[in-house]
Amino acid sequence: MPQDHLKKLENLYYAAPINEALNPTISISENISSIEQFIGQSQCHAGQFAHGSVIFKLLDDAAYFAAASSQTEFFLVTASYEIKFKKPAPVGHYKAIGELIDSSGRLLKAKSKVIDENDQIIAKGKGLFIPTKQQLSHLKGYSS
């Protein structure tokens, strides 16, 4: 896998407007990605735990970029994602780890998990990702 592709994927992640407010960090290698993020009070629901949408974003992004590491031409989208929440996530630092499971055929399969500072699993899941007709080379962030 070309190293410049992996670096461009990281740049693409940082170029996404949604990540400006969340301030995550990402590292992508062949078939694996890792995202770290502090979940603050503003990302919690009334029960004082991280909203499920925040955990889903970490899971989806980690699995997505593990899958995208194997796709050098087209932008992927999430076709489906199945989540299993294990325990609530209070304010703190979290890490999502994604791994490509299968890239044979048109659909790419990847799994991911979110762990807390004590390496306890908060949530895990797996997803299917499909290439679009949109070329990576035309996207702001990837091409710069």
Rank of each mutant, 00 (worst) to 15 (best):
E82I: 08
E20H: 15
K84S: 14
A67F: 06
V91C: 09
L76H: 11
D60H: 09
A50M: 03
S33E: 02
P24Q: 05
V91R: 07
K95I: 12
Y81F: 15
I55M: 04
Q48K: 15
Q41A: 04
S69P: 03
A89H: 02
F38K: 14
T25N: 13
K57V: 01
F75L: 15
L22T: 10
G40P: 02
E73W: 01
N31R: 12
H93Q: 15
F85S: 08
F74Q: 12
S34A: 00
I26T: 05
D61Y: 01
I35A: 04
H45D: 13
T78G: 08
N19L: 00
A62Q: 04
V77S: 03
Q48I: 00
I97T: 13
F74W: 07
Q37D: 08
Q37E: 13
I39H: 00
D60W: 05
Y94T: 06
L76S: 12
Q48F: 06
A63D: 06
Q37I: 08
I35M: 02
I97C: 08
A46E: 06
A89C: 04
P88M: 10
G98D: 09
Q43M: 13
A67E: 07
I83A: 09
G92Y: 06
F38A: 11
Q71K: 10
Q41Y: 00
Q71V: 10
F75A: 09
S27I: 04
N23Y: 05
Q48R: 13
D61H: 01
T25S: 15
I55Y: 02
V54A: 13
Y81S: 07
L59C: 01
I55P: 05
H93W: 11
C44P: 02
H93L: 10
T72R: 03
S42H: 13
Q41K: 07
Q41C: 00
F38H: 14
T72S: 13
S34Y: 00
K84V: 11
L76T: 12
F56N: 06
S42T: 09
G92M: 03
I35Y: 01
I39V: 14
S53W: 01
H45Q: 14
T25Q: 14
D60E: 15
T72G: 06
S80N: 14
I83C: 08
T25V: 10
K87C: 02
T72F: 00
F56W: 05
G92R: 03
I35D: 05
A21S: 10
S42N: 13
T78V: 13
Q48V: 01
V54E: 09
D60G: 10
A50V: 04
G47H: 07
F49A: 04
N23G: 07
Y81V: 08
F56E: 03
Y81M: 09
I35L: 11
F74K: 14
S34I: 06
V91Q: 14
Q43K: 07
L59K: 09
F49P: 00
F49E: 05
L58M: 14
V54T: 14
N19D: 00
E36S: 11
P90S: 11
F74C: 15
N31C: 03
S69V: 04
F74G: 07
K84Q: 15
I39D: 01
G52Y: 02
E30M: 11
K84L: 09
E73R: 02
Q48W: 01
G52I: 10
N19R: 00
S29P: 00
P88I: 10
I32A: 12
L58F: 04
A46I: 12
Q43P: 03
